Simulated assay, not measured.
Amino acid sequence: MTDPRPGLSPRVRKFIGTVLMVVLVVVWALGAMALAQGRVTTLPGIWQFFAYVVLGIGWVFPAGIIIRWMQKHDRRTDTL
């Protein structure tokens, strides 16, 4: 008999989300370092400031989407 409410269990969703978060942080950090060492240094001071702000906290928005997905309420009652 199949489950009438398909979907990932919270445990699997959190594992996948954790892996995605690690990948996001590593890729974002490497990309930010590459941009900060190259293109950002050639900008005027005020634009450098804004670039560093975006590079520094820009990863929070995609991470928030991943966290929201990880914490999504599961309708199944047989899993923790």
Rank of each mutant, 00 (worst) to 15 (best):
M21I: 12
W28F: 06
L24P: 04
V12Q: 02
W69Q: 05
R68Y: 06
V40P: 10
P4E: 06
I57C: 10
I66K: 06
R75H: 06
G45Q: 14
Q48P: 01
V40N: 13
L30H: 00
R68F: 11
D3I: 00
T79D: 13
L43N: 10
L43S: 05
P4W: 09
V12G: 00
T77I: 10
I57P: 01
K14E: 08
T79Y: 15
T2P: 15
M70K: 03
I46V: 02
T42G: 11
T41D: 11
R39W: 15
M70H: 03
R39L: 12
V22Y: 08
R5V: 13
L55E: 01
M33V: 11
I66L: 13
G64N: 09
G17A: 07
A63H: 08
Y52T: 06
R76V: 04
T41S: 15
S9I: 01
V22N: 07
M1L: 11
K72L: 10
R75P: 04
V12H: 02
W28E: 11
D3E: 02
V26G: 05
A34Q: 12
P6R: 12
L24K: 07
G45K: 14
S9F: 01
G31N: 03
R39I: 09
Q48L: 00
M70I: 03
W47Y: 12
I67L: 14
W28H: 14
P4C: 11
M21L: 15
M33D: 14
R39N: 09
G7S: 06
L30C: 01
Q37L: 15
V19I: 15
A29Q: 03
T42E: 14
V12R: 05
M70R: 06
D78K: 11
R5Q: 13
L8Y: 01
A32Y: 09
L8S: 03
P44E: 15
I67G: 04
G64D: 09
T42D: 15
W69N: 10
L43D: 09
S9G: 02
P6T: 08
M1C: 10
T2G: 04
L43T: 04
T41A: 15
G31V: 01
T77V: 10
P6V: 10
G17V: 07
A51R: 13
T79M: 13
Q48I: 00
L43M: 14
R13N: 03
W59E: 11
